[in-house]
């Protein structure tokens, strides 16, 4: 579930509010959005990959909320890791160009 919006990184663009399929966030005028309905989060990682400044972290636990620490996430390279893997963000090549599914399915054991 969504566990972190970093107030120091967030630029208040509200993109996460717009894209969240299950409407988890509330916009805050002149401020950082709030996680208003965490229980509705479906752990789809969409907010995280749309966030232009890697201010968000979605923990893999879909059923329960877990504590996360921003500094640890930065140190381990997990903050923004999925966005990096799909090649979103300035100066990155889009990951779909390197999609090797055609090689993997060729060997699929079915």
């Amino acid at each position: 579930m969504i566990e972190l919006i970093s107030p120091t990184r967030c630029i208040e663009c509200n993109l996460c509010v717009k894209v969240c399929p299950t409407n988890v966030f509330d916009e805050v005028r002149g401020g950082v959005p709030v996680i208003a309905r965490q229980e509705d989060c479906q752990t789809c990682y969409q907010c995280e990959i749309h966030c232009p400044v890697d201010a968000m972290y979605v923990a893999p636990e879909a059923e329960v909320s877990v504590a996360v620490d921003e500094n640890e996430l930065i140190a381990s390279g997990l903050l923004g890791s999925y966005r990096k893997e799909i090649g979103w963000g300035k100066g990155r090549e889009r990951g779909s160009k390197f999609d090797t599914t055609y090689l993997v399915t060729r060997q699929f054991r079915g």
Binding site: Y82, D99, T101
Partner: peptide
Amino acid sequence: LMRTAQPN
């Protein structure tokens, strides 16, 4: 190859 095929 598996990782670049399905990062998710």
